[in-house]
């Protein structure tokens, strides 16, 4: 007797991803899509695509999608959510998008306590434009615009976005996760689910920061890239819940 134990989530359209080998955007997409499907909210969800490597993720997610200008996704999501307060709205943003050009929009969406979820993908580099320094680039990290390594004296320090947003009252749930191991991926999925539960309960702004790989621009093979998250990134960006530890979301 055969039993089907696994199939592609209906949260994804089935169009093959275009991401580089070893890039973990695909895993993050699947975790979000699976969550939308498992919570049975796919049909009431509107996602906002960013500028960056995932600019066309509107082709991958099977819910309604709106593509936003660089950094403006939280403002666009605010507009959508204020029109459809009963819908579920999420933004998917990289570190250049969210932590550089879109800093004002993310801070104020969080401060207003917009009932949206933000999935903030931190890979310490601008991916799409070929590996420039991001606000999240680590000290000493070499990029195409910090070829000698990021120096605090010249380029300043990395921004810990989760810690910063966790100081805001409107940001009710903030957690940082990674997707570089099975254990971490499972933890990431729980966080994504909790973020949508927080939105469903109308509690306020929720963000999950996800440490992600960029083997192409890091100059690493996929396996070393996964290791580099533990060896280097987690030291600057510790995993954990920064706000909303006490929120119980149930099953």
């Amino acid at each position: 007797m055969e039993e089907k134990v696994f199939s592609r989530t209906r949260g994804l359209t089935g169009k093959p991803f275009h991401y580089c080998p070893g890039c973990t955007h695909g895993i993050i997409h699947r975790l979000i899509a699976e969550t939308l499907s498992e919570m049975d909210i796919l049909d009431v969800t509107i996602g906002v695509s960013p500028v960056g490597c995932t600019y066309n993720n509107y082709e991958y997610f099977a819910c309604d999608m709106v593509q936003a200008a660089h950094g403006r996704a939280p403002a666009v999501a605010t507009g959508i959510k204020r029109v459809h307060p009963d819908s579920m709205v999420f933004t998917y943003q990289g570190d250049g998008d969210l932590a550089a050009i879109g800093t004002a929009e993310i801070v104020h969406a969080a401060a207003r306590g917009e009932k949206i979820c933000t999935f903030f993908v931190n890979n310490a580099v601008y991916g799409m434009t070929s590996g420039q320094m991001a606000p999240t680039t680590l000290l000493g990290q070499k990029t195409t615009t910090s070829p000698l390594g990021r120096s605090a004296a010249v380029q300043g320090y990395p921004i810990n976005v989760s810690e910063m947003l966790a100081t805001l009252q409107g940001a009710v749930y903030i957690e940082r996760v990674a997707v570089n191991s099975v254990r971490n991926i499972n933890r990431a999925k729980q966080a994504i689910r909790k973020a949508f539960k927080v939105q469903q309960a109308n509690l306020g702004f929720a963000m999950v920061e996800i440490l992600s790989t960029c083997p192409t621009n890091w100059g690493k093979d996929p396996v070393s890239a996964l290791k580099w998250i533990d060896e280097a990134m987690v030291k600057q960006y510790p995993l954990g819940v920064f706000r909303g530890q006490e929120i119980e979301v149930g099953d």
């Binding site: 509107i46 906002v48 709106v66 936003a68 200008a69 403006r72 403002a75 666009v76 999501a77 605010t78 507009g79 959508i80 959510k81 204020r82 029109v83 459809h84 004002a104 929009e105 801070v107 104020h108 207003r112």
Partner: peptide
Amino acid sequence: GVMVQAESEVAAINMVYGAAAAGA
């Protein structure tokens, strides 16, 4: 109705973009 005082004109027009996309 909804009146949101945005953090900037840039944010305000992008809120308009989102609300218009949502059919309002």
